[in-house]
Amino acid sequence: MRRPLIPVGSPFQLLLLAASFALAGYAGVRLLADDWFGVAVWFVGAALLHDLVLLPLYAAADRAVVRGLGAAGHREWVRYVRVPAALSGLLLLVWFPLISGMVDRRYRLGTGLSPDGFLARWLLITAVLFGASALLLALRLRRATKQRPPAVH
């Protein structure tokens, strides 16, 4: 008997995935009913944009920080840059429409609130994050200097 070209795999997994695709298909035809192309672009585009653009970008930025500080002999400082930068970037990513001001008009007209503070507040939070990080690093360096045995001098 010839072996099939591709093995079939677990029958349980096949049945489970068949059921999953059937349900996804039932909802999917309804999801795609109005503007199938636009929705498909958003659905697949979200995955591609994340996997092939966002993730490589932040990974490359992180690697640049690690290399840069490593070259300067301060690899252990990485966290003091990485943590505030990532947290600030996370806030920008989530609240980009409000921070960038792209929904200003609708926001003001709809809610009766001022859209002006978001950018300023994000910048202030970013300043606090980097400032706190710098402070922690400074404290750590001071402690390290004090603990260093005098013989080193």
């Binding site: 591709i6 093995p7 795999g9 677990s10 997994q13 999953s20 695709f21 996804a24």
Partner: peptide, 15 residues
């Protein structure tokens, strides 16, 4: 894909 089931699983991961 290592198998038919694996191929389907990867398609499912796109969803």
């Amino acid at each position: 894909a290592r198998s038919l089931a694996h191929a389907l699983e990867r398609i499912s991961l796109l969803l």
